[in-house]
Design a protein around this nucleic acid. Structure first.
Length: 201
DNA sequence: GCAATGATGCACT
DNA sequence: GTGCATCATTGCG
């Protein structure tokens, strides 16, 4: 079992977004392992990407995106969902990868319980197929903000299942209609083709 | 099947 | 006061 090291996240953001597909995200909760393989990510790159929070400049909230790679950037959206990002590239260049979907592997019943799903929504495909949903399922909140993910505690990544190029797809990001047209159209969302755990079924 | 909508807290003008 | 890197439910047909 190999924990992804800090220099993995120091690469270009698109490289990291692609390389994260198939890697295993692990959450340790009260001694129990919850984990899943990453099936979908999105890249937010640099100070001029108007889809990125960092395009507004350095603020207390976006400061982490300007920080060193290999840490989390987590924020609350719509008053109720957390988003999990991993900071990439060198310090002072604001960039991160949003984790959008997982295939749940370990702790599936715990994830289901934390999502408090009704029976009609109890398929495994629905537990973690969206950025807000996976944070709820893995109990990821602001207490994990700015967390170094190479320590192998609380939250980390392990080498998973390599995804061949033929199985990887890319396209425009989701939920960024407020961005400039060029940024809205940039194919910076990456996912595993025909995978049932990807968001927006 | 789909589109429309309400929930809900906080960063930022 | 405005606007979110979302999701589950409702109301259609």
């Amino acid at each position: 079992m190999t924990i992804l090291p800090p220099h993995f996240f120091a690469q270009s953001t698109l490289t990291v977004a692609r390389a994260l597909l198939g890697q295993r995200l692990v959450r340790e909760l009260k001694g129990q392992r919850l984990s899943g393989l990453i099936m979908e990510t999105e890249a937010y790159i640099g100070p001029h990407d108007t889809a990125s929070h960092a395009s507004k400049g350095r603020t207390p909230r976006t400061e982490l995106m300007f920080g060193p790679p290999g840490r989390t950037y987590i924020y609350l959206i719509y008053g109720m969902y957390y988003m999990l990002n991993l900071v990439t590239e060198e310090e002072n260049f604001p960039a991160a990868v949003l984790i959008r979907a997982l295939e749940p592997l370990e702790g599936v019943e715990t994830m289901q319980r934390q999502r408090a799903l009704t029976p009609t929504l109890s398929q495994r495909e629905r537990f973690t197929n969206g950025p807000g949903k996976l944070c709820r399922a893995l109990q990821i909140d602001l207490s994990l903000n700015n967390w170094p993910v190479s320590l192998g505690q609380n939250l980390w990544l392990e080498a998973g299942q390599p995804i061949p190029d033929a199985a990887a797809a890319s396209g425009p990001r989701i939920g960024v209609d407020y961005a400039q047209p060029a940024d809205r159209a940039a194919p910076w969302r990456v996912w595993v083709r025909d995978n049932p755990f990807v968001s927006r079924r």
